Computed example of a mutant assay.
Amino acid sequence: GTPVASAVTATGLTLTWPAATDAGGSGLAGYEVTQAQVGSDALVLLNSATNTLAVTRLLPERTYRFTVRARDGAGNRSTASPVAEVTTPAAPAPDTVAPTRPGTPTASAVTATGLTLSWAASTDNVAVTGYRVYRSAAGGDTLVGSPTGTTLAVTGLTAATAYQFHVVAVDAAGNASAASAPVAVTTADPPASGGCAVTWTTSGWDSGFTANVTLTNTGTTAIDGWTLAFTFPHAGQKVGQGWSATWTQTGAAVTATSLSYNGRLAPGASTSFGFNGTHTGSNPKPAAFTLNGTPCTVS
């Protein structure tokens, strides 16, 4: 039967046609669709296993002619169907309209190291595809996130520090809105001394040892993301393979930074992590620990 075109755009369409039958025993194997562009001698041969085909890579405002032949398992081909002639429409005009300006962001859940920003959504003549959130500073703006929605959790901030953020909306064509009005926010003070407690235990052999660390939030506010820092008493003490934290060592100074699953500690909550290490000579316990720059009690 004659193929029928649907979902016609400037660059593609969908062809459907009545299914063929085969009585020769080898069975219907598929279809061959011939595509010809009016005004051109080039032919394109397309294959389809079913009686429908999505045709792509067409040109706008061109006329195309399509015929279909069925093919059986033995390689026999039917006569060609009647011609279907289709003219593609003009391509849509480029989208040059930027989204509207987002609403002024507001900050909530402000802690010493993070906060959550939210803002009123932008609109667009086609669609808003996302937002870019910037932290403003004297040296220029820094992109801190690109959410598709109207909220963003910002982490890694410094306690008792003033910040300013603004938001820009973008669409699929890359058009960017005017920046929102900025929001200024100051992070909370760090927990008071004694807001954290560290328990350090080791088991050793020859020049190796395993250190297990338990960190407890003894303060009254949640900790969102932590870095525990300490200094080995002896230069020969070295961190090897660690777990449940990201470990770094520079000289005798060591830091353990939270992972995605254990960075939040509610008041009274604890988390454990550790490492296998080596030492030369004795292997004393570090005398002091700090959590995000604040001293902890040690046991």
Rank of each mutant, 00 (worst) to 15 (best):
V144A: 02
F232V: 06
P191N: 14
A192D: 09
R62C: 10
V126G: 00
A29L: 08
A159Y: 15
T2M: 10
A179V: 00
L291Y: 11
L259N: 14
T34R: 05
T202W: 08
N283P: 01
S203T: 13
N262G: 13
A109H: 05
G195F: 10
F273L: 09
T56P: 07
S244H: 11
A178Y: 00
G274Y: 11
A80G: 14
A84D: 08
T186M: 10
A169G: 12
G25V: 03
L45C: 03
S48R: 04
D206T: 08
A192Y: 00
S81V: 06
D72L: 03
T50I: 04
V126C: 00
Q241E: 12
S180P: 09
T158Y: 04
H166L: 08
W200S: 12
S40D: 14
N217A: 04
C296Y: 04
S299H: 15
L53R: 06
A137C: 05
T186R: 12
A179Q: 06
P3W: 02
T216P: 01
A176E: 13
Y64Q: 15
D224T: 11
L59K: 11
G25A: 10
Y163N: 02
A288K: 11
V128I: 05
T210G: 08
F275N: 08
V254P: 07
R57K: 06
F165H: 09
A127D: 09
S108L: 03
W200I: 13
T297N: 09
L28Y: 06
A184R: 11
G194F: 13
T142C: 02
L28I: 10
Q249T: 09
S203D: 10
P147M: 06
S270W: 13
V154G: 00
T14I: 02
P99D: 02
G263R: 15
W205S: 15
T161K: 10
A160F: 13
R264S: 08
A176Y: 01
R77Q: 15
L15F: 14
A19T: 13
S6P: 07
Q237V: 08
A138S: 10
G27K: 07
T255D: 02
S122W: 05
A229C: 02
P286F: 10
G103D: 11
T221I: 01
F165G: 05
G251N: 05
T158N: 10
A42H: 09
L53G: 07
R264K: 14
V168Y: 00
V86N: 12
A245Y: 07
S108T: 15
H166D: 13
G263E: 11
T104Q: 15
G156P: 03
T111N: 12
A211R: 06
R57V: 08
D141L: 10
G293I: 06
P190N: 15
N283K: 08
G145V: 06
A23T: 15
T248A: 11
A245V: 05
T250S: 15
V183I: 08
A169K: 02
E32Q: 13
T202V: 12
N76L: 01
S299L: 14
A109C: 01
T96N: 07
T104G: 02
L59G: 03
A49L: 07
A10E: 03
L228V: 09
